[in-house]
Design a protein around this nucleic acid. Structure first.
Length: 914
DNA sequence: GACCTGCTGCGGTGTG
């Protein structure tokens, strides 16, 4: 059932009109007096909860979701059960109150900071109504005094994280602990549903429901495309559940910061420093701003650039990203909360968890990559009911003008990305088995039914289940000799337990599904001793520096003093020039929703429609594209062929995001190579792909054949890409989650490289001696699903088949082709050659465009030089590492979790019969 | 002196 509610009510009389003032429950009256008039959707939630119904509440950030559910919980469980509040007594802090009411409500948030904020929010009404409820917080930050208090008895409402909940399930007395639980609330469910953390939570909730079949479950979500699925995953038998959409008349304004002129605006590039003066102006004109960047190094660079432009802002602006030390980050968050900071440059680290912050202005530097992300970030401003949220996109190259306007279209049409639950990840299941074996033990049949009640495991086969049991019993076929892998064993009654206290401890220390990268701590070195911690950087970045070298980190210029035990000690440095660390993060491909909106804009441009200032501005560039070649449309697939000194180029623009393009390019190269032996170089970006061959290819004929066929897709993709190597990288995470590899005691600083080495060892051993190990196939599945987006590739292929091919022979690279050329050059083998090449290309382009009209890329040459250096470094590293004992396959940690930017493919020689 | 792609999130032990 879907209920759609009307516009927000800000006038008290309207609210009273709608919900009936006299029917106000006590808790609602409290809200009426202290907070605001309830929105209709809040009352819907209230009605459902007081009738014992589960459901999901979807509304924009800042709409009051937390209070909607909380006041309902109070009404149902505090006021009805324990009688009226007692206004005579002096209120006592609910945080320290003696526990008279047992654990009733469990509140789960994906972040510690959010948990702390939530605690503050929940306490207020409990104290004001003077309920005999106690509120408590349980995360990794909870101190030992509070922990021991909680180990005796949990508070009435416990706020926690998925990981901490799982840890509670490892308690021997878990069943009694949750005996009195009545309701679970999962906050920011959209953040969890699509990943393994969400699966871990699904398993934990199934456990709680076994003990409490009547458990009321509520999910809170924002910015999600597939609400029904999200509810189905959270609540089994969701047909009885209620989906409430709080439709607020929230104004979401997305606009674009236009460059002064399109003529000198780059065709490629990602930093966007060209826009610095305009951005400074925007920051100036507003009391406080958040400036989102897409990567951590970009964040550092922009912070520095802003300071250089406005030295008087020192102390007024700050930066925030995931590699900075927690203290630094908390300082920044507090500065935002208190309004003492004028601007913060950040990454997604501030997407969530900064509720109740007074931010006026949000800027997004570079591509937003997805609709949901942009909405989420826009929601950081005007974070209160009735106030407009505004976000301004700052393009870093010309085509991002279209991306920005496309994002506005997608938001207007509410085309938000869906998120799907992963399908039966066995590493998470294996971890869960040990968790439950610890938490009182299990009998196999009962637990199987419970596990299958989770959406992610609803199709778990008997074979898979027995494999998982065998795996926790003796580590599968190849590890039976090792006692460390006998983690759970059935007793004579068939109840599985963990046989060994040592293994139990190790398991508790490995709970969770987040696997971190290899990194090194950065600390100050003062007077011969270790000082304040600043954060962490990639091992391999530090390895490239020698003592005395300067680098930029956390907004400071630092000098490397020494490296000792996985810590880089630094001191403050002076000067101007420094290296900026590059972290290896995940890659965010352009989402389907945003890409489709872009193609739609391109299509209308091809038909002569240029609506809005962005399209108007980019018109001359699209004119060049269409003069030299053509524009892609909804019905046409644009392909461009070009001959250069390098060979024969094919450019194709499917607009399907970089990971699909990588798979697609490899596939085309592979299939083309079957018809005609050839060697291809590949380059991809979010908009298209390039195939470069040494000999000409008759693409026209080739496209008429089965090159876009979805037949044998899996086989061809696995064959064309080195899927085995990709799977090995994936396996590191699986090995950690499934408990094969122990990351060591906290603070022991076992190198993540060691973890990598041992997981590679397991990978090889399994492949040799236990090829049916299901964790191997899981690794391959994950590569196909997540890194290559095989489903999206398949739909892209179908889509391409239905399109009319428009093959253009071009004389020079078009505005669309140019960024792809640059992408490939970035790893060119000779920087001198590259410098010449770029210069020549720019000159050619300018000539072609009628004199000095286009400047495609800023500082490509220096960039190439740096890459060159890195390449030499990596090569040296590889040589150094060949000293490893044979049999221990090694994979460079800098390469983890990344798909190759460029692959050279040499397809197989045609076999007989072809 | 170089110089610039790739995000985020959690958790845990030891014992006189």
């Amino acid at each position: 059932m879907i209920l759609q509610t009307a516009t927000a009510l800000t006038q008290p009389d309207v609210a009273a009109d709608t919900v009936g003032h006299s029917d106000f429950p006590l808790s609602c009256q409290w809200f009426a007096a202290h907070q605001w008039q309830p929105f209709p959707f809040q009352l819907q939630v209230w009605q459902a909860v007081t009738h014992g119904q589960s459901g999901m509440l979807h509304a924009t950030t800042g709409a009051g979701k937390t209070y909607a559910v909380w006041m309902a919980a109070i009404e149902r469980f505090a006021l009805k059960k324990t009688g009226k509040s007692d206004p005579e007594k002096a209120p006592k802090s609910a945080r320290r109150k003696a526990i008279t009411q047992p654990l009733t409500v469990l509140w789960i948030t994906p972040m510690r900071a959010l948990a702390a904020d939530t605690e503050r929010a929940l306490i207020a009404p409990v104290e004001a109504l003077n309920l005999d409820w106690s509120i408590g917080l349980r995360t990794g930050d909870t101190n030992s005094a509070e922990r021991s208090r909680q180990s005796k008895r949990l508070p009435t409402a416990l706020i926690t994280t998925p990981e901490s909940l799982t840890l509670l399930l490892t308690r021997q007395d878990a069943a009694e602990t949750f005996d009195s639980l009545k309701m679970v609330v999962v906050d920011e469910w959209h953040e969890l549903i699509g990943n393994k953390r969400g699966v871990q939570l699904q398993l934990a909730l199934a456990r709680l429901r076994r003990w409490q079949p009547q458990l009321i479950t509520w999910g809170l979500s924002a910015t999600l495309g597939n609400l029904q699925h999200a509810m189905d995953v959270l609540i089994p038998n969701a047909s009885n559940a209620l989906l409430v959409q709080g439709k607020l008349a929230k104004n979401l304004i997305i606009d674009t910061l236009l460059p002064p002129g399109i003529e000198r605006f780059p065709w490629a590039g990602h930093l966007g420093l060209r826009m610095l003066p305009q951005v400074v102006e925007e920051i100036e004109s507003s009391p406080n701003s958040l400036i989102f960047t897409n990567t951590r190094s970009q964040c550092e660079i922009w912070y520095q650039a802003l300071l250089e432009a406005r030295p008087d802002w020192a102390g007024l602006i700050a930066l925030h990203h995931g590699s900075l030390d927690r203290n630094v980050r908390e300082w920044v968050e507090n500065g935002l909360k208190e309004g003492t900071l004028k601007a913060v440059v950040c990454t997604s680290s501030l997407d969530l968890g900064v509720d109740f912050l007074p931010v006026e202005r949000v800027l997004q530097i570079g591509s937003p990559k997805g609709v949901a992300r942009l909405m989420q970030r826009a929601g950081r401003s005007g974070h209160a009911p009735g106030r407009a949220s505004r976000l301004t996109v700052v393009p870093t190259h010309s085509l991002e003008l279209i991306e920005s306007v496309a994002a506005q279209d997608a938001i207007a049409a509410r085309n938000v990305e869906p998120r799907e639950s992963p399908q039966k990840p066995l590493d998470v299941l294996v971890q869960h088995l040990v968790t439950i074996a610890l938490g009182g033990g299990f009998s196999a049949d009962d637990l199987l039914a419970e596990v299958r009640s989770c959406y992610a495991y609803r199709q778990l086969t008997d074979d898979e289940w027995h494999w998982a049991l065998a795996f926790v019993r003796h580590g599968g076929e190849s590890l039976t000799a090792y006692p460390d892998y006998r983690r759970a064993i059935p007793d004579e009654h068939g109840v599985w337990h963990v046989p060994d206290a040592h293994l139990a401890r190790r398991h508790r220390m490995s709970v969770g599904t987040i696997v971190s990268d290899a990194s090194m701590l950065v600390k100050f070195w003062a007077k011969g001793a270790s000082g304040k911690s600043l954060g962490s950087v990639e091992e391999n970045f530090i390895a490239r520096l020698k003592p005395g070298d300067h680098f930029l980190f956390g907004g400071r210029l630092l000098e490397l003093v020494r490296v000792h035990e996985m810590t880089a000690f630094v001191r403050k440095a002076t000067g101007k020039k420094a290296a900026v660390p590059r972290w290896n993060g995940g890659r965010l491909p352009l989402s389907t929703e945003l890409a489709n909106a872009m193609v739609a804009r391109m299509d209308s441009a091809a038909h002569g429609h240029f609506d809005g200032p962005e399209m108007h501005m980019i018109k001359p560039l699209l004119q060049v594209q269409s003069d030299w070649s053509a524009l892609p449309t909804n019905s046409n697939l644009l392909a461009e062929c070009m001959q250069s000194r390098e060979g024969w180029h094919l450019f194709l623009y499917p607009y399907a995001g970089r990971s699909v393009h990588l798979g697609l390019a490899s596939l085309i190269a592979w299939r083309a190579g079957k018809h005609q032996p050839n060697t291809f170089s590949i380059a991809v970006n979010d908009y298209g792909l390039e195939l470069l061959s040494a000999t000409p290819v008759d693409w026209e004929t080739m496209f008429k054949q089965d090159i876009f066929s979805t037949d044998h897709l899996l086989i061809d993709v696995i064959g064309s890409l080195n899927a085995g190597e990709l799977a090995q990288r994936r396996f590191r995470e699986i090995a950690r989650i499934s408990g094969l590899v122990f990351a060591g005691f906290p603070g022991a600083h076992k190198s993540a490289r060691q973890v990598q080495a041992s997981s590679s060892l397991f990978f090889d051993v399994f492949r040799k001696y236990d090829p049916n190990n299901l964790l191997l196939s899981q690794a391959q599945q994950e590569v196909l699903q997540q890194e290559l987006e095989i489903d999206r590739l398949s739909t892209t292929l179908q889509h391409l088949q239905s399109k009319q091919l428009q093959l253009m022979h071009i004389k020079r690279p078009t505005p669309f082709a140019f960024p792809l050329l640059v992408e490939r050059f970035r790893e060119s083998s000779s920087s001198e050659k590259l410098a010449d090449r770029i210069a020549r290309m720019v000159a050619d382009l300018e000539k072609a465009a009628g004199g000095g009209a286009y400047m495609p890329q800023e500082s490509v040459t220096q960039q190439a030089k740096f890459n060159m250096q890195e390449k030499v470094y990596k090569k040296r590293e590889r040589v150094r590492k060949t000293g490893l004992p044979s049999g221990v396959a090694h994979s460079d940690s800098s390469q983890e979790n990344t798909t190759p930017r460029r692959t050279r493919i040499i397809p197989p020689k045609p076999r007989h019969g072809f």
